[in-house]
Amino acid sequence: MVEGEGVTARQASFGGRGARLLLRWCAVSCWLVVPIPAVVLFTTDVPWWAGVPIQALVLLLILPIGIALWFDADQHREDTGRLLRAGRPAVAEVVELELVDPGDGSADTAVLRLRISGDDVPPFEATYRGSADPEFRPGALLHATVDPADNLFVLRNLHRS
Rank of each mutant, 00 (worst) to 15 (best):
S29G: 10
S29V: 02
C30T: 11
W31P: 04
L32P: 13
V34Y: 00
P35D: 14
P37G: 12
P37V: 03
A38T: 04
V39T: 14
V40I: 14
L41K: 13
F42Q: 14
F42R: 15
T43Q: 15
T44C: 01
V46L: 13
V46G: 02
P47F: 00
P47V: 06
P47M: 02
P47K: 05
V52K: 09
P53E: 05
P53V: 13
I54C: 00
I54S: 00
I54P: 00
V58M: 06
L60M: 03
L61F: 11
L61Y: 01
L61K: 02
I62F: 04
L63A: 02
I65N: 06
G66N: 09
I67H: 12
A68F: 06
A68S: 05
L69E: 01
L69G: 01
W70A: 04
W70D: 12
F71D: 03
F71Q: 01
D72Y: 15
D74L: 06
D74T: 07
H76W: 07
R77V: 06
D79L: 08
D79C: 06
D79Q: 13
L83G: 06
R85V: 12
A86T: 15
G87H: 11
P89H: 08
A92Y: 07
A92F: 05
E96W: 12
E98A: 15
L99P: 03
L99A: 08
V100T: 09
P102H: 15
G103F: 05
G103T: 12
D104Q: 10
D104R: 07
D104M: 08
A107G: 09
D108P: 04
T109K: 05
T109S: 01
A110D: 00
A110S: 00
V111Y: 04
L112E: 08
L114H: 01
L114K: 02
R115Q: 10
I116F: 07
G118S: 03
G118Y: 05
G118M: 08
D119Q: 10
D120V: 03
V121P: 09
P122D: 12
P123R: 05
A126V: 08
A126Y: 00
T127M: 00
Y128C: 00
R129W: 05
D133C: 03
D133E: 02
E135L: 11
E135P: 11
F136E: 03
F136H: 15
